[in-house]
Design a binder for these strands. Structure first.
Lengths: 208, 208
DNA sequence: ATCATATTGTTCCATTTTTCACAATAACAA
DNA sequence: TTGTTATTGTGAAAAATGGAACAATATGAT
C-alpha cells in the first residue's frame, strides 16, 4: 500500500500536465516529456506509473486519454467531490469564492459559521449556522471539509464535523489538531510555509 | 548544509509548541514532550537540535527561553519580515487581511494589482499598481512575496518581482513556475492538497 | 524479413531520512 | 560520598526515497 504522499502529489501534477498537453493537441506522451513538465526524472515517472499498474507502449509512450482516465480514477476524480468550508472569515470566504476548484471537479457546497451575522442562505455557496453542519453532512454525505476557523475553535469544530461523518480535513488553523479516529487531517500552515521560505532565502544569501 | 525542508518545518513546529508551553508556565522541556506536541519521536527532536548545534542538559532537558532564542535565530525571526502580496483577488485580499502573520513577526506591507479598480493607497495594507512594484521592492528592500494572481499572469509577475529583488516567493497559482536564477519559489497548491486528501480518504475507506 | 532505434519496465544502487540503542553524564537521594 | 536514575547526544542500523542503468520489446526503416 502506498503511503508516499509525494508520489500522490506527483500523480496530480502529471494529470495537470497531461491536460495541458492534451489541450495543445498531443495524443501521446513519453516519460521524459512528463518529467520535464513537472520537474522530475523520467525514471520516476515510469516508476510512479508502475506502482499503480499503469503501463505504456514500448517505443510508443503513453496514450494521453487512457493515462488521464487511469490517473483520474486513482485520484478519485471520476466523481464530483463535494466539500464544505467551516469558518466564513477572511480565508474561508476567499476559498468559497475561489473559482479554481471547479475545473478540478471539486465543488464547495456550503460554508458554516457560528457568527449569526455571517449566515446567508441565498449565497451562491450558502453560509449556514454551525449547528446545522451535522444534519447537512449526513444528509448530503459529505466526506471532505476545509477548516478555516480561529485556532481556539479549531479542535472542537474538527470533532464536531468528524462526528458527523467527515473523513478528511484540510486544516488552515496554525496548530496541530488531534484527528478523531478514522479521519485524516492535512495541514496548510501559511506561517510555517513563509518561515520555511525565509529560512532558505537566508541560507542562500549567506552561502552566496 | 541543511537542505531538508521537513527538518526546517519541524523547527517551526517546535518553536510554536514551545511558545504554547511557555504560556502555560513551563520553563524547561524534554525531547519527548516536544515530540508529543508536534507528533514525532524524541530521537528526532534531539537529532534536529544536534544538527543545529543546539544542546540541552543531561537529565535537565532544554531551557525553553534559550531554546526559543536559538530556534528564532535559525528561522530568521529575530527581525520583522516584510512581505508583499501580488494579486488582490479573493486569495490575495484574504491574506492581506489575515491577522495570523503578525504574531509571527511577518508583516504584509503592501499589495499589488494590475486592475486600477483594486488600487487603494489608504488601505491598512495599501494596494498599489503593479507598475510601482519594482520601485517599492527596491526602496523598501523586500525579499519575500506571496504570489496570488491568475495562472496566466503568474510567470510574468514572478519574473517582474524577482528582477526587482524578490528572493523568495510563495506561489498560490496552481501551476509550475520557472524560478529566476537566485530566487526560490515554494508552492501552495490547494487543488492538489485536496486531491491528496481525497486520495487518502478513499484508500482508508477501501482498506477498512 | 531483418535490422536499428527508441522507449518502457524493472532491478539494482545511492542517498536521504528516520529510528534505535546505548554510552556519557548531570541531578538527585541516601 | 557513593549510587541510582533520567535524559541527552550520537553512532550505527534500518527504512524510505529517488535515480541510473539496462534488458526487453514494439515500431518503423531498409
Amino acid at each position: 500500500m502506498i503511503t508516499n504522499k509525494n508520489c500522490i502529489i506527483r500523480l496530480s501534477r502529471y494529470k495537470n500536465a497531461l491536460y495541458r498537453l492534451q489541450a495543445l493537441g498531443f495524443v501521446k506522451v513519453f516519460s521524459d516529456n512528463l518529467a520535464d513538465s513537472v520537474g522530475g526524472t523520467a525514471s520516476q515517472v515510469r516508476k510512479d506509473f508502475s506502482i499503480f499498474g499503469i503501463s505504456g507502449n514500448k517505443k510508443g509512450g503513453y496514450q494521453i486519454d487512457s493515462l488521464l482516465e487511469k490517473l483520474n480514477s486513482i485520484l478519485g476524480k471520476d466523481q464530483l467531490q463535494k466539500v464544505l468550508v467551516v469558518g466564513a472569515g477572511h480565508i474561508g470566504s476567499a476559498l468559497m469564492r475561489y473559482r479554481g476548484f471547479e475545473k478540478e471537479g471539486i465543488k464547495i457546497v456550503a460554508g458554516f459559521d457560528i457568527d449569526p451575522a455571517k449566515i446567508n442562505r441565498s449565497n451562491p455557496v450558502p453560509i449556514l449556522p454551525l449547528d446545522e453542519a451535522k444534519a447537512f453532512i449526513k444528509s448530503n454525505q459529505i466526506r471532505i471539509a476545509i477548516l478555516a476557523v480561529p485556532d481556539i475553535a479549531a479542535q472542537s469544530a474538527l470533532d464536531l464535523i468528524c462526528a458527523a461523518g467527515i473523513k478528511g480535513v484540510l486544516n488552515f488553523a496554525p496548530l496541530r489538531l488531534k484527528a478523531p479516529d478514522g479521519s485524516i487531517v492535512n495541514n496548510v500552515n501559511l506561517e510555517i510555509e513563509l518561515e520555511n521560505l525565509i529560512y532558505f532565502v537566508n541560507v542562500a544569501e549567506k552561502t552566496k
